[in-house]
Amino acid sequence: MKKRKSSTFWWGVLPVVGFLALWEVIARRGLISGHLLLPPFSVVIREFFDLTSSGLLLENFEASLLRIVIGFCAGSVTGILFGIIMGWKEILRRTFSPIIALLYPIPALGWLPLLMLWIGINEMLPIAIIFICSFFPVLYNTITGIRQVNKKVVDAARTLGASERYILFHVFLPLALPNIFTGLQLEAGMAWRVVIAAEMVAIPTGIGALMMKAESLIRVDIIIVCLMILSFMCLVFERLFIYLEGKLTSKWK
């Protein structure tokens, strides 16, 4: 079993190593026209260390991370709370569903012009965008999770003497967890994509803003460093929620 796992790992790593090697060779030998716009991978890595040691990367990374943590936590917690209430109480779901159905399809970045006017260009702007980006999908997944709980299981809990509140916390919520985590997983990565976009358009700090500055200086290596960080952080956030879900539900799922 161990052998099979390690061979699967290497089959995953090899294409990446091959791609990086090819990139390095193509960039070093100038095999494509306009090769100045494609620095070798080793140069990108060196730039990553330079940016890190100068503190510039960390400063911008921290700014983006903080916005994401605040916006994503606020959006997710609110989404989960509203989702639980709406999934649990049919009347509330029926009342609010049309409004949510109208707002949900608007892409998070579509709110940007409106929020720039309402909130202004300040720290609250990307946080509000991330909040919107996280809120709706988590809300939808939570409602679905609660509503998918087998009605007979709930009836079984009732006949066993459980109050509605007890059932909410001990039946509905644990059984809706896989759905809630699906929403969180999807949106954790999306939050990074959205914050970068918001920073590129309107905010002077953060990874997105750093990319825009690099673009004006034609520093492709810095842009690629930022993209690699974005890719890595999306992956880390998604994996974090997969891990947490596994921890909480793998025993019984």
Partner: peptide, 19 residues
């Protein structure tokens, strides 16, 4: 309500709590 009737109910497909 059901919770106060002191009734034990064995459902057709058992309806155990999977978690």
């Amino acid at each position: 309500p059901a919770r106060k009737r002191k009734v034990g109910y064995l459902f057709q497909d058992f309806c155990l709590f999977p978690h």
